[in-house]
């Protein structure tokens, strides 16, 4: 198994993936290195890649008008950054900033979407991995919205 394929398959996101799908996914993958403070992407940019974080951490930020950026979540090694590549019009909905030296595998979104269209089994494997991630983030966001530690806590 080549180095990049091994790294992709060892990422927790792809735990349990059939070995035969490894080369298919790795065909859309490339290595990234982000310096502290460097942005992976900005809100509104085309969501043409998503990231498997291997090392470091990434802050997901929203910039309210006239105010400093608000960090809505942080993601670490073993996490995924980016789900907007799955949903038209494929534009990022927030900024992503490396908080420290961060190494990641980028997966080309168009390449992977095309392969998922052509191979529904691969598409289903991707859906099984992304859906719990998206539902989990929805639940986390709901918990944040409840402001449970506020004075009128839930």
């Amino acid at each position: 198994m080549e180095g990049l394929e091994r790294i992709v398959l060892e990422h927790p996101f792809f735990a349990g993936l059939e070995a035969k799908l490894g080369p298919v996914i790795t065909g859309c993958a490339r290595n990234h290195r982000f310096d502290p403070g460097q942005y992976l992407f900005h809100e509104g940019d085309p969501a043409d890649e998503f990231y498997l974080i291997r090392h470091g951490s990434v802050a997901l930020e929203i910039l309210p008008p006239g105010q400093p950026a608000v960090v809505i979540a942080t993601e670490q090694a073993g996490d995924i950054v980016g789900a907007s590549w799955l949903v038209a019009p494929y534009r990022w909905r927030f900024d992503a900033r490396a908080r420290e030296l961060t190494r990641a595998i980028g997966l080309d979104a168009r390449c992977l979407r095309d392969k998922c269209e052509a191979d529904n089994h691969l598409g289903y494997e991707m859906m099984k991995r992304f859906l719990p991630l998206v539902v989990g983030r929805l639940e986390e966001t709901r918990l944040q919205l409840l402001d449970v530690y506020g004075k009128h806590r839930a």
């Binding site: 950026a69 608000v70 960090v71 979540a73 942080t74 670490q76 908080r99 986390e140 944040q144 530690y149």
Partner: peptide, 23 residues
């Protein structure tokens, strides 16, 4: 330690506490 909300000056984690459990 994680916090629900922070500005960019916070160096720690942002997110709800159950998110810390897998680590």
């Amino acid at each position: 330690v994680t916090v629900d909300h922070a500005d960019a000056s916070w160096r720690g984690d942002v997110g709800v506490v159950p998110k810390l459990i897998p680590r």
